[in-house]
């Protein structure tokens, strides 16, 4: 091999003057290329899988044993009610890391290069989101497996579970655009985390994840009923318990569409015109 660190003029000339210009890649190709980048990042920085592996396990154990006994009296009974909700809560909280990754990439200047390439601009974000879908699926599977070991038995069967995960993925894909928007706006990771928690905590806790909304004061019940997380939990529970309604599915699609329609274009606008 060549000596390290030595530049040979002839080699250099050849390498940088090949004026070959391949065809512009398709939007699909570039999106998948960004997905492969995200996968490579996981390979080199496996710690980033912490949020999709350890969080779900901790959350499930904590809520099952801490509250299961206290609130419902029996852990395995409570698990039937609780698991779908906790699953939704955990995965939708994980979505916020999408924004943090983007924010980091932007601050490090990596996106400057991508933004000067003649490619379909959203592919950088879409590619990353595709890999996030894998992460969300992984988190769901880990949680369901553990739940099953602890005694969770979905009446909706295998298909019901698949349907439930499908609902979660659709919703989380759309919700992620909220975090990409914030990820571009916020200047530091710290402030981004803070704002993300401020949005997520009320959404996930003031919902029907832990309690039946009918036990709440009416003003709170009003919020819980329209909270998109509650809508998703309804559909996911329906799928898992085998009694899902078309209405519940419709609400999930609607709330997902609202997130996507508002925040995807907003993200792209900010991405294109970042100061």
């Amino acid at each position: 091999m060549s000596q390290p660190n030595v530049i040979k003029e002839e080699q250099l000339r050849q390498a940088i003057t090949s004026r070959k210009r391949p065809e512009r890649p398709s939007a699909l190709t570039t999106s998948l290329t960004f997905s492969s980048r995200a996968l490579l990042r996981i390979k080199h920085v496996p710690e980033q899988l912490f949020d999709v592996t350890v969080f779900p396990i901790i959350f499930l154990l904590m809520f099952t044993y801490l509250f299961g006994g206290a609130i419902a009296g029996s852990t395995s009974e409570y698990l039937q009610f609780l698991l779908p909700g906790i699953l939704v809560m955990t995965v939708s909280q994980i979505t916020m890391y999408t924004g943090i990754d983007l924010n980091n990439d932007i601050r490090k200047g990596i996106f400057d290069r991508f933004r000067t390439l003649p490619i379909w601009l959203p592919s950088a974000l879409v590619g990353a989101l595709l890999v996030d879908m894998i992460r969300y699926s992984g988190a769901s599977i880990i949680m369901l497996t553990l739940g099953f070991i602890l005694g969770f038995r979905p009446e909706g069967g295998f298909l019901g579970v698949i349907g439930a995960i499908g609902m979660i993925l659709i919703f989380c894909f759309c919700l992620s655009w909220v975090w990409t928007t914030l990820g571009i706006i916020m200047r530091s990771e710290k402030s981004l985390m803070m704002v993300s928690f401020m949005v997520l905590f009320p959404l996930t806790f003031v919902s029907n994840v832990f309690v039946d909304p009918q036990t709440l004061p009416s003003w709170l019940e009003g919020f819980v009923d329209v909270n998109p997380i509650s809508l998703l939990v309804d559909a996911v529970r329906g799928f898992m318990h085998g009694n899902v309604t078309v209405e519940a599915i419709g609400w999930v699609f609607l709330s997902s569409a609202v997130f996507l329609i508002i925040f995807a274009p907003l993200t792209m606008y900010l991405y294109r015109n970042k100061k």
Binding site: M1, S2, P4, N5, I7, Q11
Partner: peptide, 12 residues
């Protein structure tokens, strides 16, 4: 590969 070698980064 071509670029890395040309820029003296083949080893790295």
């Amino acid at each position: 590969k071509e670029l890395l070698v040309a820029f003296g980064l083949g080893e790295a």
